[in-house]
């Protein structure tokens, strides 16, 4: 996958409350935020950024349903078609005895499926090197980033004045 380098103008804030206010400020100024990076999940940020609720749990439900059907139908096939055996005088298709395994496989498929989906859609895998704007973002800084690739100076200066007005402790540019 080829990727164009981006010029990013970003500001760092010292506190999540400052960040939340700054995002409101940016929205009022009609500035388009590329992304926000935080050291921990900041609650109340998603609606301000206009992020739709994640659909990961729907994927999880689908994986779980596939797991339940796979396990149950497989056991049914084995004990009624492929190799029927009577255990303890019970019917071949002894549904209550299939429940524990059906449940376990449901949980297994839902969990593994969701985790794999999560890493895939986030573009994460062992060995991936994602460009980071600042090393302190995973420590104690809250970052708002603007994409300024090819932007003219008037836009940049508008963003810089936004950072100054909203109380950013540092403002930098970086090409990633």
């Amino acid at each position: 996958m080829s990727r164009e380098n981006k010029d990013v103008l970003y500001g760092l804030y010292d506190d999540e409350q400052d960040l939340l206010k700054a995002v409101d400020h940016a929205n009022a100024d009609h500035l388009e935020i590329m992304d926000v990076f935080t050291p921990f999940p900041v609650h109340g940020l998603d609606p301000k950024l206009g992020l739709a609720e994640s659909r990961l749990h729907i994927a999880g439900f689908i994986y779980g349903a596939i797991g339940a059907l796979t396990a149950f139908l497989f056991m049914t096939w084995v004990f009624t078609r492929d190799w029927p055996i009577i255990f303890g005088g019970k019917p071949y298709w002894s549904v209550p005895a299939f429940i524990p395994i059906t449940f376990e496989v449901t949980v297994l498929m839902a969990s593994v499926g969701m985790v794999v989906t999560f890493y895939t859609i986030c573009g994460m895998a062992p060995g991936i090197v994602s460009p980071t704007l600042d090393d302190r973002i995973t420590d104690d800084k809250f970052c708002i980033a603007f994409d300024v690739t090819g932007a003219d100076d008037s836009v940049k200066s508008k963003m810089e004045s936004f950072f100054a007005a909203s109380g950013a402790s540092e403002v930098n540019t970086k090409t990633i």
Partner: peptide
């Protein structure tokens, strides 16, 4: 795994 701390992530 290349974690960045993005809001969506």
């Amino acid at each position: 795994f290349g974690w960045t701390g993005s809001a969506k992530h």
